[in-house]
Design a protein around this nucleic acid. Sequence first.
DNA 1: GAACCCATCATTTTT
DNA 2: TGATGGGTTC
Length: 756
Amino acid sequence: MYQITGLNPEQEEACSYTEGPLLILAGAGSGKTRVITHRIAYLIEGKGVNPRNILAITFTNKAAEEMRERVDRMLTDGAKEIWVKTFHSMCVRILRRFYEKLGGKNNFNIYDTDDQKAIIKETLKHLGLDEKQYPIRGMISSISKAKEEFLSPEEYARNEAGSYRGRNVADIYAEYEKRLQKNNALDFDDLINKTIRLFMEHPDVLSIYQERFRYIMVDEYQDTNHAQFVLVKLLAAKYRNLCVVGDDDQSIYKFRGANIYNILNFEDEYPDAKVTRLEQNYRSTANILNAANAVIANNTGRKEKTLWTENEEGEKLSYTLYPNDREEARGIVTNLRMLRRKGLCNSDLAVLYRTNAQSRVIEEQLVREGVPYQMVGGTNFYARKEIRDMVGYLKCISNPADDQSLARIINVPRRGIGDSTVVKMREYADAHDMSLYDVVVEAKNLPDIGRSAGKVSAFAEMMQGFRRKAEENDLHGLYQEILQKTGYRSGLLAENTEEARGRVENLDELGNKIADFELNHEDATLLTLLEEISLVADTDNEDETGDRLTLMTLHSAKGLEFPVVFMVGMEERLFPSGMAIDSDDPDAVEEERRLCYVGITRAEKKLFLSAARQRMLNGNYIYPGESRFIKEIPKYLLEKKGAGHRDEYEEGSGSTIRREPVEDEWRGTTFRPKKAEPEKKGIEDLFRNGSVGNVQSMSRGFQPDYQVGDQVRHIKFGKGVVTELIKGGNDYEVAVNFEFCGEKRMFASLAKLRKV
DNA sequence: GAACCCATCATTTTT
DNA sequence: TGATGGGTTC
C-alpha cells in the first residue's frame, strides 16, 4: 500500500481525497506540484487506479513536461499510460482521431497568431475595410472572445447588428472562418471548441473519453477560459472525480481570456466539492511573505487565504528610489556584486519587470559591466522567417488545402511566380471551388497565366516529389530534400552576409530538431511533427549552461522561484500600468496587484524593490512617482535606500512629461547591441569594384512603346491614360491616371505597362 | 526588387 | 527611443 509521507496535513488531505470534486487552493510556494505528483502516485499505487484512467491537464508544455518527469520518477511503472497534456495537445490528439465525424479532415493544420494575422489582413483587404479602424490584433482578440463563448459568426452578427462597426467585425469573423475552413486549418480556440462540439454532437465519442479519464486533474485552474471550463465539465460529468488546483491570487492572464470565476465559483458549479487550502509556504522568508500578504489583502472578492511560514524572518525588503532608470540598472549590478561576495551565483538572481521595454537599459548596463545574463521569453525559434518558410513547405505537403501556407512559399525562394500570377490562380481557385494547390498542379491548362505557367508547373512537380517523399515517413530526409531542391539554403549561403549565415544556422538547427524529434518519438510523423511545432513555443531554450543572471517579465516569472529577486520599475503607471489605472474595469488594477503578488512571492531569501524618479518611456522622460504597491507594503518590512528618497527630489513627482534630456555621463560610449548593418554602398564603392556597369538592365536603357495620351493597362491598377512621360538617365518616369486608382507615378522599366 | 524615408505607435503571452 | 509598415525612388 502506498504511503503518503513527508506532507503536511493539508497536503496529505489534498492527495488522499480522490473521489468527487475537489478544489485545491494552493498558495504561492505551498508545494503544489508535489501534491499533484503525490496524488497521482497515491491514485495508482494506493488506490489501484489504472494509470490509463488518469488525465492531468496543464497550461504550458513546460509544466506538462515537468509533471511527467516527476510522475515518472515516483512510479515504478505504468506512468506512460497517464495522459499528461496541455489543453491544446489533448484536443489535437482527440481531433486527429475523430475530426472526420464533424465533417473535417484529420490532417488539419494548426494556425498560430502569425497565420491568423495573415488571414485577417487578407480578409480586411477583401472586405475593403481599413486596418486602422479594425486593427488586426483587436480583430483576433474579438474573434477569440466570440469563439470562447461559442458564438458562431451568424450569432455574433445577430448580437452586433445594432452597430455599423459590429456588423463589420461580424463580417470579418465570418470571412475568417470561411478561410480557415477552406484551408482545412484550426486556430487555437478551434482546437478546444471543435472538441467540445465533437463531444456534444457525438455522445458516443464523449463517452469513450469519460470512461477513459475517470480521474481528472487540472493545474493552474485560475487560468482557464470559459471554453476550457466547459470541456473539463464535459469530460468529468460522468465520474465527477475532478480535482482542480489553482490560486485566484495568481490569476494574471485575463487579457488572454482567463476567467477567474472558474475558480471562484467552483463550489457553485460543484456544490459537493471539497475545498482544501494549502497555506503553508515553504519558499520565502516571513518578511517577504508578509509583504506579499499585505499587498494582496487590498484586493476584493478573493478567496481569503493567509500564507504563513515556519521559515526565518529574514532580511527586510530593500527599496531604493533611484534618480533615473540607468542608475536603477547600475544599482542591480552593484547589488549583484555585493551578493556574489557573499557567495551567491548569478543564477540565483532574477530581475523582474512589468514591460519588455524595460529590459534594454538593464541589458546595456549588464553588457557594460560584463555580467552574463539570459532573457526568458525571447523570440520563438519557430517565428523566424526562414523557419516559418520551411514549416510552410511542411504544412503544404501535409495539408495541400492550406492555401495560406502555399501562398507563403510559392515564390520563396524566388522562382519567377509573381504576385499577379498567384492572384490569378487564387481567383481561379475560388471561382472553381478548388484549392490553390489543385490549380498549381493544373497550371498548364490554365488560360491567362501565360509565361508563368512553366514555372508554376515546375514548382508543382517539385511539390509532388516532396509529397511522395513524405510517404516514406523519413522526416529528416524530407527536410533535407526540401532544403536542397528549393535551393533555399544554398541561396542564403550565396548571399554571403552575416545575417544570411545566421539564417542558415537556424535552418540547420531546425534540421537537428527534426532529427531529434524522430529519435525521441515513436509516433514521429509529419502530422505529429507539425503539431509539436505549432503547439510548443520554443522560446530560445533557456539553457542552463553558464552562471547567468535571469531577466524576464513578471508574467513569465510565474511558477518560478529564485533566492534573490529584483523587482524594478515600481512606479505608478508603469506598475500598475497606466492602462490598468485608466481602465473602467476595477479589476484591472487588481490584476496588476496579483501580478505584484506573484512577483514578490518568487523570492526566497531577499527581495530588492526599486523605482526610478525619472524614466525614459517611448522616447520621453517621465516622472512617474512611486507605485501604490510600495505604499501597500508595511513600512517596518522595508529598508529604504538611495538618495532619491530625499525630499529635495519631491518636485519631480507626478507624471509630468519633459523633453529636456538629462546629462548623460556615458554619452559616446553608450552600448548599442550589434546589428547586422546593411552594407552601405557609396558611389565610391561602386566605382572601386567596378560594378557600375552591371547595374542591371537599366544601363541598357528602356524605351516605352507608349506616349502621353495612350491608353495603357497595369497589372495591378488596371486601365489608365498616360498623362506624363519624363526622360531620366536610363529610364522614363511615367504618370498614369488610372480609371479606378487615380494618378500614379512610376518608373517605366518597372511599371510594365501594356498599351491597349 | 530593394534601399530609403516618413509617419505612427507603443502592456502582459501561451497555446 | 525603437520597431514597423507603407510609400517613394531608383
